[in-house]
């Protein structure tokens, strides 16, 4: 089943085109990243499929059906900022969200525990730090254990420990078979968490598909030895290697995805009289790939 299908979606704000004819689909069970720099249309895209923005043209489907409010109750969504009643406590805010989603209160303690907010659950929302607000918003998404989650910049405002926790939570949700749609401008976040990605640039969809295929089409191996010149000579003649660069003393070898074999490289160099003191497999720099995709 397709969780989300976007068909030729466009959205104009006056003369500005926030989305230009975007189409893609999100299969069930994937962690689908919507990646793009600030202002590329990520939040507009998610706002449209949550019915708080009206598309100029185009349409979308949820769960293979014409979207309606009942679909949204089955999706836990954090859009842009945590939106809660400032004068109510965390737990009272969750009671309202649970009522709207037509669930009972029984989940509330559990989701607060999941995001580590139990201690402050009775404090007013207005007294929360940015990170705590974000945690409460994530807790609200988890109410009723929905099969689909939509997160817009989920690690926004969190400290490094919080970021790691939320990423771990997303991986855990993925393991439980949930579908996660996540917008982010953070490359490594998408790479660490997502299985699929769609890249937006100034409202246009540049590409979408499997993360491994899109974000890295080459494997890179860093090698080092006492004699860099000799090392470079030797590896040039090694089979399978596409190209060799010398980046300030670090020699980099590029291979097609999945073809770099560290044992082979080590053996080959040793047989040819070079003893390696550094050998490391790296995927191609995501930044480089991202700039490649979003520039020109």
């Amino acid at each position: 089943m397709l969780i989300l299908t976007v068909e030729n979606l466009s959205k104009n704000y006056g003369r500005i085109q926030a989305l230009k004819n975007v189409s893609f689909s999100v299969p069930e069970g994937t962690v689908f990243g919507i990646l793009g720099p600030n202002g590329s249309g990520k939040t507009t895209m998610l706002g449209t499929i949550m019915d708080i923005l009206k598309p100029t043209t185009g349409s979308y489907k949820l769960f293979d059906e014409v979207p309606e409010s009942a679909h949204r109750r089955r999706i836990g969504t954090l859009l842009e900022t945590p939106n809660f009643y400032h004068y109510l406590s965390g737990v009272k805010n969750l009671e309202i969200a649970a009522e709207i989603k037509q669930h009972g209160k029984e989940d509330i303690d559990h989701v607060l525990q999941t995001v580590d907010l139990t201690r402050r659950k009775d404090s007013k929302f207005s007294t929360y730090s940015l990170g705590m607000k974000q945690r409460l918003a994530i807790a609200s998404c988890l109410l009723g254990n929905p099969k689909v989650l939509v997160f817009d910049e989920p690690t926004n405002g969190l400290d490094p420990v919080g970021i790691a926790e939320i990423r771990e939570l997303m991986k855990e949700l993925h393991r439980q078979g949930k579908t996660i749609i996540m917008a982010s401008h953070l490359l490594d976040e998408v790479e660490k968490v997502c299985t699929h990605v769609a890249i937006l640039k100034r409202g246009e969809l540049i590409t979408s598909g499997n993360v491994n295929e899109i974000l890295s089409n080459e494997d890179m191996v860093e090698v080092g030895a006492a004699d860099t010149n000799l090392l470079q000579e030797v590896v040039k003649n090694m089979g399978a290697v596409i190209r060799v660069t010398n980046d300030g003393g670090v020699v980099k070898l590029f291979f097609l995805v999945g073809t770099a074999d560290l044992t082979f490289i080590n053996n080959y160099c040793f047989k040819n009289g070079v003893t390696l003191n550094h050998l490391l497999l790296k995927k191609k720099s995501l930044e480089a790939r991202f700039f490649e995709l979003t520039n020109n």
């Binding site: 949550m50 409010s69 939106n83 400032h86």
Partner: peptide, 21 residues
Amino acid sequence: TNEFNFKTHRQNIIDGWTRQQ
């Protein structure tokens, strides 16, 4: 206006109300 300030009018819709409701 509280709802507009807190953006909870959006959140209510996101969580599953219709705009009409």
